[in-house]
Design a protein around this nucleic acid. Structure first.
Length: 258
DNA sequence: ATGTCGCTGTGCCAGCGA
C-alpha cells in the first residue's frame, strides 16, 4: 500500500501537474493540502477520471485538505481537528482506508513569530497532540501525514542559522513536534534515511530548487502497528522541477500488506 | 529586506498568505 502526501498550493491551478504525477507514480492513497478552493470547486470529476475516489474539506482562498484513494469508497471519519469549535480553518481530514486510519493535516505556518499566528500554530499543535494520543490509545494502524510546517532538526534545513527565528523552526515548534513523536510515533522518512539530507519543500524565491536550498516539512508519522510494515519511502523530487509546479514535492511511503 | 507564486475582488492590477 503506497500512501503519498502533497501540498499542491492550489488544486485547480495545479491540476495538470497533479494528474501527471498521479498517472506516473500511481499511489494508492494521497493526502492533499492547500487546496485553496471552496468545497464546491474541488475538481472531483477530473480526479475520478484519473481513478481516485476523494473526500475533501475546502475553504475559499486558503487552506483546504483532501484524501484520494484507489480502493473504492472512502470511509470518512472526520473533517476538522477536535478541540476548538471556533476554528473555521480547513486543516484536518481523516478516513479509514484498507484497514488503516489516515489523518491528513495542514499545520498552520505560524509566521510572523511571535504573534497571534504563532500562538494559533502552537494551540493547533496541542490539539493535534491530544487527538493523536487518542488514536494511539486505540491500538490501531494509523498514519498522520501532511504539511507539518516544522523542520524537526538542523539536519532538515539547508541553512539552520537563517531559520532560528522562523515559526517553522523556533524552539517551541521543534519541541512540539518532538513531544508529539515521543507519544510513540515513527518519523517514517528519518527511520529509513537516518543521516541523509532530505528536503520536501523549496521556496519559489531566489532559485531555491536550483540551489537545493530546501526544507523537510512534510512528514509521515506511523503508529507502532505500521512502523513494522514500513518497507520504503521517498520524495518525488523531480516534480518540483516541472512547469507550473508547487513549492512542495510529493512524499510517499510503502507499507507491506499484513 | 528581498524574492515568487495562487487566489480574490476592488477586477486585467493590488493585497494577502505562504
Amino acid at each position: 500500500m503506497k500512501i503519498a502526501t502533497y501540498n499542491v498550493n492550489g488544486v485547480n491551478g495545479r491540476l495538470p501537474v497533479l494528474l501527471r504525477w498521479l498517472q506516473e507514480t500511481q499511489p494508492d492513497v494521497v493526502c492533499l493540502q492547500e487546496l485553496k478552493a471552496p468545497q464546491e470547486k474541488f475538481p472531483e470529476e477530473a480526479i475520478r477520471d484519473a481513478g481516485y475516489h476523494a473526500i475533501w474539506h475546502g475553504q475559499k482562498s486558503w487552506n483546504g485538505v483532501a484524501i484520494l484513494s484507489r480502493f473504492g469508497e472512502i470511509q470518512e471519519l472526520r473533517k476538522g481537528l477536535p478541540g476548538d469549535d471556533e476554528d473555521t480553518q480547513s486543516r484536518y481530514i481523516e478516513a479509514f482506508i484498507n484497514g488503516v486510519v489516515i489523518g491528513g493535516l495542514y499545520l498552520p505556518n505560524g509566521n510572523p513569530a511571535p504573534g497571534p499566528k504563532f500562538d494559533y500554530k502552537l494551540q493547533w499543535f496541542e490539539r493535534l497532540k491530544l487527538h493523536a494520543a487518542g488514536l494511539l490509545a486505540r491500538d490501531i494502524p494509523v498514519v498522520l501525514t501532511g504539511d507539518y510546517n516544522v523542520m524537526p532538526t538542523e539536519q532538515d534545513v539547508y541553512k539552520p542559522e537563517r531559520w532560528v527565528d522562523d515559526a517553522l523552526f523556533r524552539p517551541e515548534t521543534r519541541e512540539a513536534f518532538k513531544t508529539l513523536v515521543a507519544q510513540g510515533w515513527t518519523d517514517a522518512i528519518r527511520k529509513l534515511y537516518p543521516t541523509e539530507t532530505i528536503y520536501t519543500f523549496w521556496d519559489y524565491f531566489r532559485n531555491a530548487y536550483g540551489r537545493n536550498a530546501g526544507l523537510r516539512i512534510d512528514h509521515f508519522l506511523l503508529s507502532p502497528q505500521l512502523d513494522k510494515r514500513l518497507v520504503a519511502a521517498g520524495v518525488d523530487k523531480q516534480v518540483r522541477g516541472w512547469e507550473k509546479t508547487s513549492d512542495h514535492a510529493p512524499v510517499w511511503i510503502e507499507l507491506a500488506d499484513e
